[in-house]
Amino acid sequence: MVRATLLGSLLLAVTACGGGGSDSGAASGGKDAEGAKNASPQAVVTIAPKDGADRVATTGALKVAAAKGKLTEVSVEDAKGHEVEGKITGGGTGWKPSVHLATHTRYTVRAVAKDAGGRSTTQKSSFTTLTPKATFTGNFTPEDGTKVGVGMPFSVNFTRGITHPEDVEKAITIKTEPAVEVRGHWFGNDRLDFRPEEYWKPGTKVSVTLNLDGVEGRPGVYGKQAKKVDFTIGRSQISTVDVKTQKMTVRRDGKVIKTIPVTTGKSGYDTWNGQMVITERLSVTRMNGETVGYGGEYDIKDVPHAMRLTTSGTFIHGNYWGGGTFGNYASSHGCVGLRDVKGGYDGSVSAAWFFNRSMVGDVVVVKHSHDKTVAPDNGLNGWNMSWKEWTA
């Protein structure tokens, strides 16, 4: 009896000692962990503009910041789910968009920051951008889905003079396959052309993104285009007109495929020297001296196989009135003439042959003329500038 009672007392003591220490420790650790878990996050997220704001500027207004923590996630989307690109800066203390916002658009912002303890703070906000009173667009060439020659730049003519050219140029991105550096050059304040250093490589695929919607091109005047344009570079065709010999040599992919007798601008009406890009092809057109400052000197209503080389009126075209001038002497008012027939029905004549084998973007080079080199903005003729001049 005494032994049993003593054994029971020992067991009780051991159990009480071991059990009591374990319970106490578990209770204390559980409270600490639970307290840390349930503590309020310390990170503070601030979004500008404030929730519900409207008439928000498309640049400079959107900002996200974090205090007492670091941003881990920021998303900005429009109503269609299109996300605005941006990046976290300052080691997680801020975020800013990489591009401008579109006009008259509602955006939703969601930002997440974590404090030193790993606890997250999430903030959401929505706002609407301004609706501009004045806008501009860019009229561009070449068109989407076209195939063009190796000399064709991507050219944009704006409907308003641009006073913030850096912002506008940044909003136009060009990607190519295979990759090649493409740079823009401004002609005045309303035209921006893009080209590589050398003629395009045949077969190059060019993709242009015009993200002009929301760009402030001049004070209070915003772009309204958001468009993608894809075009392809065809085979290489470069034709060289030698004024001395009155002959044109046509090279396709570097090989001579034909030499054609021509007639160029006579004395006082000399044809421009330089590299000129075909920008327009017309099966038949009217040519009137009145339109180019040669009033009353000619008015031909049915010029066949005409292809424009300059804005000022230089063409390479069919000529059915030239008689024996082709390959012998200069007789035109500045254009390059090729033998043709009235009505342009004969596909075997030089003008028809050349017209049928040419495309917009092909290059015609004129050399040995007494005139000066064509201005780079007279047509799409920026190839007459060095790369250093183009990128200056």
Rank of each mutant, 00 (worst) to 15 (best):
P153S: 14
F154M: 04
F154W: 09
F154D: 00
S155L: 11
S155R: 14
S155N: 12
S155D: 15
V156E: 03
V156D: 03
V156N: 11
V156S: 05
N157S: 13
N157E: 15
N157H: 09
N157C: 04
F158Q: 03
F158T: 11
F158E: 10
T159C: 05
T159Y: 09
R160E: 14
R160N: 07
R160K: 15
R160V: 07
R160W: 04
I162K: 01
I162A: 05
I162L: 03
I162T: 04
I162S: 02
I162V: 14
T163E: 01
T163N: 03
H164F: 10
H164D: 08
H164Y: 10
P165M: 15
P165L: 13
P165R: 01
P165I: 05
P165S: 11
E166R: 06
E166N: 12
E166D: 11
D167K: 11
D167S: 13
D167P: 04
D167V: 06
D167R: 09
V168F: 01
V168H: 06
V168K: 01
V168C: 00
V168N: 02
V168R: 02
E169N: 14
K170V: 10
A171R: 14
A171D: 12
A171M: 00
A171N: 07
A171Y: 11
A171T: 09
I172R: 00
I172Y: 01
I172H: 00
I172S: 00
I172F: 01
T173A: 06
T173E: 01
T173H: 00
T173P: 10
T173D: 08
I174M: 08
I174P: 07
I174F: 00
K175M: 07
K175S: 13
K175H: 13
K175P: 01
K175C: 03
T176M: 02
T176N: 01
T176V: 01
T176Q: 13
T176K: 03
T176S: 10
T176H: 03
E177K: 07
P178H: 04
P178L: 04
P178Y: 03
P178T: 03
A179P: 08
A179D: 06
A179I: 00
V180T: 15
V180H: 05
V180N: 08
V180I: 15
V180E: 14
E181D: 08
V182C: 07
V182M: 10
V182F: 08
V182S: 02
R183P: 04
R183M: 06
G184K: 06
H185L: 14
H185Y: 02
H185A: 11
H185M: 12
H185N: 10
W186I: 11
W186G: 05
F187W: 11
F187C: 07
F187T: 09
F187N: 05
F187G: 13
G188L: 07
G188S: 04
G188W: 04
G188F: 07
G188K: 06
N189I: 06
N189M: 04
N189Q: 12
D190Y: 10
D190C: 12
D190L: 13
D190F: 10
D190Q: 13
R191K: 13
R191H: 15
R191V: 05
R191A: 14
R191E: 12
L192A: 13
L192Y: 02
L192S: 11
L192G: 12
L192E: 09
L192P: 09
D193Q: 11
D193T: 12
D193Y: 15
F194M: 10
F194D: 10
F194E: 02
F194Y: 11
F194G: 12
